[in-house]
Design a protein around this nucleic acid. Sequence first.
RNA 1: GCCGCCGUAGUAUAGCCCGGUUGAGUAUGCGGGCCUGUCGAGCCCGUGACCCGGGUUCAAAUCCCGGCGGCGGCGCCA
Length: 430
Amino acid sequence: MIKRGLNTGVLALAKLCGWIIRKARVGKVLIVEVCGNNSKPYVLALKEDRDRELYAVAEPLDIGSAICFEGELASEQRSKRGIEYVATRIEVYAKPIEHLPVDIAGKVPALLETRIKYRWLLARNPVEKAIFKIRTGVLKAAREYLEKNGFVEVQTPKIVAAGAEGGATLFKVQYFEREAYLSQSPQLYKQMLISSFERVYEITPYFRAEKFNTTRHLNESWGIDIEQGFINGVEDVMQTAENLVSYIVDFVRINYKDELEILGVNLPKLTPPFRRLKFTEAVDILRSEGIEVSEVEDLSDAAEKKLGEIMAEKKHDLYFIVGFPWTSTAFYYMREEDKVYTRKFDFDYKGLEIASGGQREHRYDKLVEALREKGLNPADFEFYLEAFKYGMPPHGGFGLGVERLIMKMLNLENIREAIMFVRDRTRITP
RNA sequence: GCCGCCGUAGUAUAGCCCGGUUGAGUAUGCGGGCCUGUCGAGCCCGUGACCCGGGUUCAAAUCCCGGCGGCGGCGCCA
């Protein structure tokens, strides 16, 4: 029986497909490495005298050829790089019409620019492929965790009306005779759904029209957004955040051993609860280190990074900063009685904010008041406000940046490495 | 929006500061040869490049100006 080989690569008899990434001829032996869906390459060792026919087929094939082979796992595994098969048949599906523009074998480094341009091709390289296989695992783990914990997956619109709440700049789109925008966050919609679902989540793109050019921003990025109702306080939401991230990291640690090894990443097991740092505490810590920090504004990236270093020394890779001042947050966060601080938190991983969220204001009157205080017109938020009229329970949630999480998990230097097709300040192709 | 750095073969780089000895060096790739299954195999031969435009000069990859492109920092970034 011929079976399509899956990720395991351990089927006794299989048809395996992929692309030739390396070819070496040593004496009378031709060694062909083929990359498929598997992270480790398939390796065929063909001897000129023993495997005359297959040798003749494989010998002239260029790097990049698309082939399938039928065969079984070799009893003798001599390759240090891949899994060896004894082939009984090789079929050639396509040959490259030009030499590959980048080195798939990874011998010659490519600049980030080149890597981004040819990522879809470079993913034939086990190192590049590993990042994307892990990305798949991150989303799979997130769904698994959230489903197990009673969250319902939802989809909210990505074409939205004016984002009168300010914040990140919006991309304009022409929507028939009106102007619309690409959604920068499902925030308002997922909150509205807490009037009928106890817990929801969405895995969604964020579109942000900021002209940033940094190692940690994208103009199109992905988030795991959750909202949960009937909470007793912001603590419930932080627990979801830390348990979710720990579950994801553990899932990757256990199920993606090969990929982590290929990437040279050692992922330690996470053990929540993580440290909760009050915003005022964070300010004190930074000031005691001589960093200038405002008491009424969000922390700057530099301050956030520095705090990451200080926390790392105390063995805290992940930690929360809770209780941001109302002056630095959006209108929908619940304020404490003092009206100065809010129940907004940031969730930082090695000095980078990977998620932010908090408890929301669910009381209609207070929400309208908050809008006014932020200088916004409640009439612009009518569709949203209406959801708070018919029994909106206390709720909270957060948005977790997928690329930022992957970047920190895998120690990537640039967020662009964590996404296949990059949308940044200058790129809209490929 | 402001600021800094960079742009040499398919890819990655040396040379640029201090212009001429560079008909631009190296690695990898590619073509060819050798080689007892390589592990970034090795050895030999060959192949291919100065982002664009203008200027200075006897002479420009190298200095100057402009453009285009890339990377990063600040600002900004629910």
